[in-house]
Design a protein around this nucleic acid. Sequence first.
DNA 1: GCTTAATCGAGACGGTACGTCCGGTCTTCTG
DNA 2: CAGAAGACCGGACGTACCGTCTCGATTAAGC
Lengths: 204, 204, 204, 204
Amino acid sequence: MPSDTDRCAQPQRRSIGARRNPETEAAILTAAQELVEEKGLRGLTMEAVAKRARAGKATLYKWWPSRGALLVALYHASKGEHRHTDLGSLPETIAGFYSYVFGFWQTPAGRLFPLIIAEAQSNEDVADALQDYRQERLADLTALVSRAQARGELVADTDSEALADLIMANAWMHLMTGRIAVTDPAKLAHDVLRGWCLPDGSSA
Amino acid sequence: MPSDTDRCAQPQRRSIGARRNPETEAAILTAAQELVEEKGLRGLTMEAVAKRARAGKATLYKWWPSRGALLVALYHASKGEHRHTDLGSLPETIAGFYSYVFGFWQTPAGRLFPLIIAEAQSNEDVADALQDYRQERLADLTALVSRAQARGELVADTDSEALADLIMANAWMHLMTGRIAVTDPAKLAHDVLRGWCLPDGSSA
Amino acid sequence: MPSDTDRCAQPQRRSIGARRNPETEAAILTAAQELVEEKGLRGLTMEAVAKRARAGKATLYKWWPSRGALLVALYHASKGEHRHTDLGSLPETIAGFYSYVFGFWQTPAGRLFPLIIAEAQSNEDVADALQDYRQERLADLTALVSRAQARGELVADTDSEALADLIMANAWMHLMTGRIAVTDPAKLAHDVLRGWCLPDGSSA
Amino acid sequence: MPSDTDRCAQPQRRSIGARRNPETEAAILTAAQELVEEKGLRGLTMEAVAKRARAGKATLYKWWPSRGALLVALYHASKGEHRHTDLGSLPETIAGFYSYVFGFWQTPAGRLFPLIIAEAQSNEDVADALQDYRQERLADLTALVSRAQARGELVADTDSEALADLIMANAWMHLMTGRIAVTDPAKLAHDVLRGWCLPDGSSA
DNA sequence: GCTTAATCGAGACGGTACGTCCGGTCTTCTG
DNA sequence: CAGAAGACCGGACGTACCGTCTCGATTAAGC
């Protein structure tokens, strides 16, 4: 069984002086990603990351002062800059949103997300980072809802942010309870929007 | 100087034969609960629980093979058998529901819940236990929604289980993102139900 | 991998009333012997013996109150009642003695002996049992030496017990230092007796 | 009530970089020695040594992978570099040898020796270390015997190494059977050499 | 025949020590 | 002076036995 330290083919990185070495950073993030993919979150230990990345533990702690910080960095590094597109009608748009995130959460990078939520329950740093991320995504969703509202798709006094929050809550709930692979995004969007959407042509 | 072996000041619990000793079980759950209350969740280590309960570690692992299993047992032992009451109108009922669960989740016992959800993300057993618990609560909620539907409070084709799921998702979302202490349950219930509730007296 | 508890083919032994069950005793000694042969002394735990013998731990402790006691019983049960024979001349007799014991110490039963000596260093009970055994064997050897002395084979003022002790010490030394398989018994006997044996025909 | 985390009253030892810290090694050996002196050999557990030395258990296991290894190190650290002196005649010299070793084996450090022999019966590493030690001591003894032989004290064809082995075997035998405190070294030396020593003035 | 007493397998129990693992801090040495 | 390397202390992990105990079934001997 080859050990993690058998990866000595490439020459070890040297210091590049009194500056942060981007090679080292990349090696660390790559190593961390690989470890999570191979062994799950339990395999993501500072020790193992340092060894696989051929980096010193002090170097790790210098930039990512805790395991949680590394986790968040990892997620940020691997998530795309996806902006959800408006497909014309809100149910279709939200179905597209669910479809996209459920898909992403099933990729290696996306599989980190529930773990980050989990970690956030007992780690302040991660909780903060998660909160930021959520706000960002929420703004994105709220914009989509508002646009539909402007088009007259929704009941008159809809609070677009509350609805966006609800849409996101539904996605997270399905994630946390392991149902993202078995739920139909279109049905889910339909159910969540049922009460809010006016019948076609009924706009004031 | 007390010797290293001056144990057994108070009489220790004895075996009751080749059967599980309920005294021991109680002592362990009590010790675990105390530890969580005193030192938070980081203080809930198998080691500490065993020491405080004056129980052997092997005994702990025999009945609760993991920290997660202990967590779930703890939660089950301390949660009441609360059944949410129908307050006549759905918004009020759901406001009461949110009010109750947000309150409970801020008690020492309730604070275990987000940790259980977190644990479930990487622990099959806990995930299963959580799933069972969720189904139970969902049925409870669904019944409340159905009753309101029968009263004609909701739009005609409401899927009561989907709505119940949504209501619960909203609660969980607020829990996972640390907003249960700052959110008004009535406002939350109002927002979540906005689209589904018919205006008073508008039932067919 | 079959566990020790797969041996449920035969019906378990029952009590035969208020008397010691010889079947049980035999099963325990057999199980103990097998465990030592299969896994070495480290495998001889009270727990494992009880399990393999399908006996209760209390039964074990009733008759053999310690691991050391079991070890000694085991050795006594398996050693033969060998009496070393006088082959006419002392060097030959002692060569025969070395040959026999070195052979025996290489059988499964004999391999227990160094372990008993080892155990005796930190276990009073075993030390006592070992002492008794040594005295027994020493008397045997002393008799052989005395007979040779009577035949005039030895220097006049030989202390036969001291010489017997020396002969035995040499055997034990070879055992403890792992040389019984590589030493020629005849050469050993010759060396140990070199000083004491008179040349042939030189007897007074 | 002192918190569970009020550690570090006295300053702990720090790392000295990626090299073995001699302070730590010394602290561990000292702690081990003290434990043996205070509580006997049963008190020499890795756990207790680590705790008393304020060392991590991992550090212990890194340098001394087993209790046996620690035992050997302890013995080597505490035995002096004694060279047995030639007192002019072999019986006197050997009497001195027995006297010295029996004395040493009754000191705290010396009491480790039978345990090392015991450990060697089931631990390869210890067996090797013991073998080396025995060879060293045997060479020492053989030299003494050879000198006596050169002086014409011994029968002509004496195998000095075989005799030295015998002398040592006798010492070990007395050690293993708990007789070092009750045996007269001079008598023992006399008995062991009886056959080999020529009467005074009888050398060829 | 009925009671009594001892013995049986089973295994739970409180403990102790094991040997492993990781967290987070530190120091040295290499470029 | 950044960085690789890795030693260090602390402490939780999960496992393995120890020796004690209680249970309920079983059976011989004493009444």
